[in-house]
């Protein structure tokens, strides 16, 4: 029961191409993301990870190809899709609660206070509702931004290297938190990261992208049970997978350098 419960495809990327002038950030990139699964996208810098994620968010349209959410094309931001940014991206002039209510203000919707309370409790931010971002640690800010993204109960959560700026210990805590949240909500999560360890801990599948032009090189299944314990993460299977993914990424870099010479 590692791959999604409901099965089926939640997000389908079809021949996605994104050009900036002559530069192909993505070229004919295709990918299916199952409902209720966690999929990580890894790859060297400049492989189009973020471009792909932003295409899924509807914020940055593709040059050609499409992204389907439950079968309908995403051509603008959709309420079912939550987005967590690289930096926590809280609005510094609002306290934590006002930041979490920001989406509801924009949408002129009544917030579900009980759900927000539950989420705050879940990420241990109860009692910090009145704190301003500059009074919170980096980890707390990012937890706040996760609450903001989940407050609208999205069916897809897009996370763009959310923990890249955090220290290693905080990062591990955050990974466990994401796992717990997923176990509770079964929200489909697309997770961009530079860390193979993080990708393997969180994901049902790890997608390796190649740069210039960005396209899918390999998709690895990560068939371990959850919650993923230290023993599982230290097992030979995980070690082997890590090495395969590393070989993919470094192989590309060596090939890229050879091609450049």
């Amino acid at each position: 029961m590692t791959q999604g419960d409901a099965g089926g495809t939640k997000l389908a990327v079809k021949a996605a191409t994104k050009r900036y002038g002559d530069f192909h950030a993505l070229k004919d990139c295709s990918l299916d993301i199952g409902a209720n699964s966690v999929v990580s996208i890894v790859g060297p810098s400049g492989c189009g990870k973020t471009t792909l994620l932003w295409a899924m968010s509807g914020l940055n349209p593709l040059t050609s190809g499409e992204v389907l959410l439950d079968g309908t094309p995403i051509d603008r931001p959709r309420p079912e899709v939550g987005l967590v940014f690289q930096e926590a991206n809280l609005l510094p002039w609002r306290n934590l609660m006002d930041n979490i209510l920001f989406p509801f203000e924009i949408k002129r919707q009544q917030p579900d206070r009980a759900w927000i309370d539950h989420l705050l409790d879940r990420v241990s931010l109860k009692g910090f509702e009145k704190s301003f971002p500059n009074e919170l640690s980096g980890g707390m800010q990012q937890r706040g931004s996760i609450v903001r993204a989940l407050s609208l109960q999205p069916s897809v959560l897009l996370m763009d290297e959310p923990f890249g700026a955090l220290d290693a210990f905080t990062r591990e805590e955050m990974n466990q938190l994401v796992e717990e949240i997923w176990l509770e909500t079964k929200t489909t999560i697309v997770f961009i990261t530079h860390s193979i360890e993080e990708a393997l801990f969180l994901s049902d599948q790890v997608v390796v992208l190649t740069p210039r032009p960005g396209r899918v090189l390999n998709v690895y299944d990560v068939p371990f049970e959850r919650p993923r314990t230290m023993e599982i993460m230290a097992s030979k299977e995980v070690f082997d997978l890590t090495n395969q993914i590393k070989a993919d990424i470094y192989g590309q870099q060596i090939a890229g350098r050879a091609a450049a010479e």
Partner: peptide, 23 residues
């Protein structure tokens, strides 16, 4: 990023002005 955040919730140009740019 802050403007993208507002846009991801479907904010109008006017909302982006009052709730992001002005503050």
């Amino acid at each position: 990023n802050k403007i993208a955040l507002a846009r991801s919730y479907g904010a109008s140009t006017l909302q982006i002005f009052w709730k992001v740019r002005a503050p």
